[in-house]
């Protein structure tokens, strides 16, 4: 009785999990099917012949690699800038006392929730005026608008989790404030920094709206808008090719999931919900 109920539960639970994951499964299957098999009715659940031709065409015949390169530069630059500034800022917000600190923390949270569409028009004008439109730099600047409050907020709660006594001990032991930061706080914060960096990277990697508005040339276009241009500009939509692009676009994510998942859950616990 008990055994059969357990089995039933597992079947239902896994049924639901697979239903949720099905679109992703279908994405991979489609990307591996040869063109003629794609339009078979009824569709084949697993490809009868596995082909990598779409991936090959994606890399050789489309600007996919260029977009990919742009996205890597864009997301990495955003992450470095935001995590660098954010770490110092979070340290200051958590461990220093000065006038205006509370209102600053309020401002951070406020901007964390601010809709992008409010900022996008002034930012667009701003970039045009500075002559930065159609550059990766303009996107890095625009991405800090959402990534910095986000990273600050995460890092702030990681920082708050480091016992204050550790810093006090370092001060008594003869370190300056910055010395204590380097010797004691930074090593303790490292897991939090990694997890914040991952989240920031993913956020920047996936961003669409700013890229749509601020960049209009292949030279600076990241993957999100780039792949969508491939969809729109194609004479007839090549689903296999698009699915191959989707899979390739998710590769960094899959790597993170495979090796660094504990950092992701940690980040979730720290900032996203406790808020």
């Amino acid at each position: 009785m008990k055994m059969s109920r357990r089995i039933l539960f597992n079947v239902i639970a896994w049924g639901l999990v697979l239903a949720v994951a099905f679109p992703l499964f279908w994405m991979i299957v489609t990307s591996l099917k040869p063109g003629f098999e794609l339009f078979r009715r009824p569709p084949t659940m697993l490809p009868e012949t596995v082909t990598f031709e779409h991936y090959w065409r994606l890399l050789s015949e489309t600007p996919f690699l260029l977009y990919f390169r742009n996205s890597v530069i864009l997301a990495s630059a955003t992450t470095v800038v935001v995590v660098g500034i954010g770490t110092l800022g979070a340290y200051s917000l958590v461990r220093f006392r000065y006038r205006g600190r509370e209102s600053l923390a309020f401002l951070v949270l406020f901007t964390y929730l601010l809709p992008s569409v409010v900022l996008i028009i002034p930012l667009y004008l701003f970039m045009v005026k500075l002559g930065l439109s159609n550059t990766i730099t303009s996107l890095v600047i625009a991405y800090t608008t959402f990534a910095l409050p986000y990273a600050l907020w995460l890092l702030r709660s990681f920082m708050a989790g480091i016992p204050e006594d550790l810093e006090s001990a370092a001060l008594v032991d003869g370190a300056s404030r910055l010395g204590a930061f380097r010797d004691v706080i930074l090593p303790q914060l490292l897991p939090g920094i990694i997890s914040t960096a991952l989240f920031t990277f993913i956020l920047a990697w996936n961003e669409y709206l700013y890229a749509l508005v601020l960049v209009n040339s292949d030279g600076a276009r990241p993957l999100t808008t780039g792949v969508m241009t491939m969809l729109i500009s194609a004479f007839n939509i090549e689903w296999s090719l698009l699915m191959a692009a989707s899979v390739m676009m998710s590769v960094p994510l899959i790597i993170v999931f495979a090796f660094l998942q504990s950092y992701l859950t940690r980040g979730f616990g720290a900032g996203a919900v406790k808020g």
């Binding site: 679109p23 279908w26 669409y208 676009m249």
Partner: peptide, 15 residues
């Protein structure tokens, strides 16, 4: 279960 949340909206929409 977590994957849809982290995947790019562009990917989700294409699929």
């Amino acid at each position: 279960i977590l994957f849809p949340y982290f995947v790019s909206t562009v990917v989700a929409v294409l699929v």
